[in-house]
């Protein structure tokens, strides 16, 4: 239960890097804004998703 609690507490960060980042990467590629093979869209996604997740954890009151 402690592990699950810790997992849920950090879920916004995991969601940011595990879903939002690939989503941003895929969207940029979908609209042809990233040259093939370039990792910048994924890096951008990780920056946005990761920082968003960290911010969400910081703003979440401790249970």
């Amino acid at each position: 239960m402690k592990f699950i609690g810790s997992l849920m507490r950090n879920m916004p960060f995991l969601f940011g890097i595990g879903f939002i980042a690939p989503l941003i990467d895929q969207m940029i590629k979908h609209f042809g804004l990233n040259p093939a093979g370039s990792p910048w869209s994924l890096i951008l996604g990780l920056l946005i998703g990761g920082s968003w997740g960290v911010y969400a954890i910081w703003k979440t009151p401790a249970q």
């Binding site: 879920m11 995991l14 969601f15 595990g18 879903f19 690939p22 990467d25 895929q26 979908h30």
Partner: peptide
Amino acid sequence: YLAVLFACALTGHALEAA
């Protein structure tokens, strides 16, 4: 739910899951 979203993202289907 989160596992499905992550799995879709890992396999290149984040937009579809979204």
